[in-house]
Amino acid sequence: MTRNTGPGAKREARAGFVFASPWLIGFCIFLAYPLLASIYFSFCDYSVLKPPVYVGLDNYKELMGDELFWKTLSNTFSYAAIALPLGMLTSLILAMLLNTKVKGMPLFRTLFFIPSLVPQVSLACLWLWVFNGEHGVLNTLLLKFGIEGPNWLGNPAWSKPALVVMAVWGGGNAMLIYLASLQDVPTSLLEAADLDGASGWQKTLNVTLPMISPVMLFNLVMGIIGSLQVFTVPYIMFPNGTPERSTYFYTSYLFDNAFRFHKMGYASAMGWIMFLMILALTYGSLRLSSKHVHYQGG
């Protein structure tokens, strides 16, 4: 279609700015300013009670030597490295199951989605009981199958897997997005594959997965951002990241630095390092996926 030029375009541009103005203002105040301020603070000693004092690279230097910084970083990455792929796989499989034509589907969908609706605080309290090593529900069940469950919450080796189970359980958002995209896969393509005599597996691998690959990428990026920021559940369930700091995550340490120890500058430096890592990871996954992700025209 042809768009207007001349006075019409000018008027449209004016309207465009007016319509976009909430975001332009919001972007400047709530994103651009804090981001820039955060860079500045990260070079300062800042306790909020006193004006910031410039200290150069001190915060970053201190971070490099801070054992706890590395500990929380490795905790966070090892958590994300398990939780992310497992969560993506589970939610994809669930979405595929929910995409079949079976009676009572609304009920199943709700059941699978409930976990992501439960407030994180109750979720944390609930899981404390499920995972209790002595009389927790999970271990009692496992015992019925002849397995003696570990002391999930008291043993540093098992506390992170317990958190992973919780994350997988609460992955309803990703599941919904998969489901929506699965419903968007044109039946014509699947029928064509049927005519070619493709088996169910081949259809999934060669038609469905490529068709939803952009959504998988979307979920991957969102998952990276989300799992690296894990905070609320461990913060409530494991005070100070017990046992042995195995559940002390990056965001918890950042929060403690900012609001318990009042080292706002230090916390800002941590925030920026995290931002850079997420940017790099996102960029990396976009680059890697460009070969595999299949965008349809249109």
Partner: peptide, 18 residues
């Protein structure tokens, strides 16, 4: 900006609202 993690904004927005 979707990539900006909330923790990065936590401190300066607190200062802003303060």
């Amino acid at each position: 900006t979707m990539m900006v993690p909330f923790p990065v904004l936590m401190v300066p927005t607190f200062a802003l609202f303060r």
